[in-house]
């Protein structure tokens, strides 16, 4: 079965997990249950008082159960962002 994720492999992706966190990293692999490998990953922590904080993390396997959204990141646009100036409310966790 073809998955739309094939096109994202070895590209920078943004993953929003069901607990409301945002991980950015290079998609290295995935499986049927959307378990995901991201390499050189970091977490972006949003806050209304200070800019976006980036926490370096490294190599991750995220279990598919917790993945809400996977988006392809346009690196040119992303590099132009000044994260320190962007303030936003953190996402809430998914309500089941």
């Amino acid at each position: 079965m073809a998955s739309g994720l094939d096109a994202f492999v070895n590209h920078t992706v943004s993953i929003i997990t069901s607990d409301g966190r945002n991980f950015i990293g290079t998609l290295k692999g995935f499986d049927q249950t959307i378990n995901i490998i991201i390499d050189e990953s970091h977490e972006r922590v949003y806050s209304t008082t200070t800019g976006i904080e980036q926490v370096m993390l490294g190599l991750h396997i995220i279990r598919g159960d917790n993945v809400a959204i996977i988006g392809l990141i346009d690196e040119d646009v992303d590099n132009r962002l000044n994260l320190a100036n962007i303030k936003a409310e953190p996402l809430n966790a998914v309500v089941h």
Partner: peptide, 11 residues
């Protein structure tokens, strides 16, 4: 499990 963090060199 939510996620696993693994040493970089393993990949």
């Amino acid at each position: 499990i939510k996620y696993l963090r693994i040493p970089d060199e393993v990949i």
